[in-house]
């Protein structure tokens, strides 16, 4: 684990307008996440887990307080820099996979590089084939995502998230749509890749099996944080 903090949040807050009233989805969050750390963010529905994930993934910049990822204050980045940040520093794994149905598995894998141009095309292709091989789906390169099973799709999503070797991988309920065995396989795969790539892995989850695999748990209640060691009760 890298001792340098990858994520630093001070007084992090996010307010949403709900009709005439305003509501804090996150409020006064103080957070420090180290490089290579594996963190579980838990809490009941509406606690602010997904909001935190979107802020960390630079999908949302309208926050209060400070949020530094990899030393960058996200609010200060312009649209293009923010896009580059999302493409190269962050990898997303969603509960609903979010693969592009119009593209083949291979094209889905290559999409982050198509959008950012971070790697030369040949290198990106080699890395994509290597990752697909790693997740056991080499034969599916030309298939459309809709022809794959849920577990296979999530494995493709994991491979896509890791294509550009991001420092931070954000997983939003990665096993939520999978059966027990498939979920275990995907979690094993994520653990292996985490160990290989030394990236920071943040799970938003309700699944205690996922929490048990993490170094640390962040428990959120009504937008505020209560940090616990894995296995501890809330």
């Amino acid at each position: 684990m890298n001792i340098a903090p990858l994520v630093q949040a001070r007084g992090l807050g996010r307010q949403f307008r709900d009709g005439a009233s305003e509501k804090w989805a996150l409020q006064g969050l103080e957070l420090q996440i180290l490089g290579g750390e594996k963190l579980a963010v838990t809490g009941p529905s509406g606690a602010g887990k997904s909001t935190l994930l979107r802020l960390l993934g630079a999908l949302d910049r309208s926050y209060a307080g400070e949020l530094r990822v990899n030393g960058c204050e996200l609010r200060d980045l312009d649209d293009r820099a923010l896009a580059r940040f999302r493409g190269q520093t962050v990898g997303f794994v969603f509960q609903s996979f979010n693969l592009l149905p119009s593209y083949s598995v291979g094209d889905n894998l290559l999409m982050p590089n198509v959008l950012t141009g971070a790697l030369p095309a040949a290198d990106a292709l080699e890395r994509a084939r290597e990752l697909l091989d790693r997740v056991g789906l080499r034969a599916c390169w030309d298939q459309r995502p809709l022809t794959l099973s849920g577990g296979q799709r999530q494995r493709v999503a994991v491979a896509r998230a890791l294509l550009l070797k991001p420092s931070l991988v954000l997983c939003d309920e990665p096993t939520g749509a999978l059966d027990h065995d498939t979920a275990q396989q995907v979690l094993d795969l994520l653990d292996e890749l985490h160990a290989e790539q030394a990236c920071t892995l943040i799970y938003v989850t309700h699944d205690e099996r996922v929490v048990a695999r993490c170094d640390r748990r962040l428990q959120l209640f009504d937008g505020r944080m209560a940090e616990r060691q894995p296995g501890g009760s809330s």
Binding site: G57, L59, D79, R80, L82, A83, R84, R86, G87, Q88, F92, N98, L100, P101, S102, M111, P112, L115, T116, R160
Partner: peptide, 16 residues
Amino acid sequence: RAEIAILRALGGASWD
């Protein structure tokens, strides 16, 4: 719109 959002999440800028 979901695909557009995914493209944004994967590194696509607004102008892209």
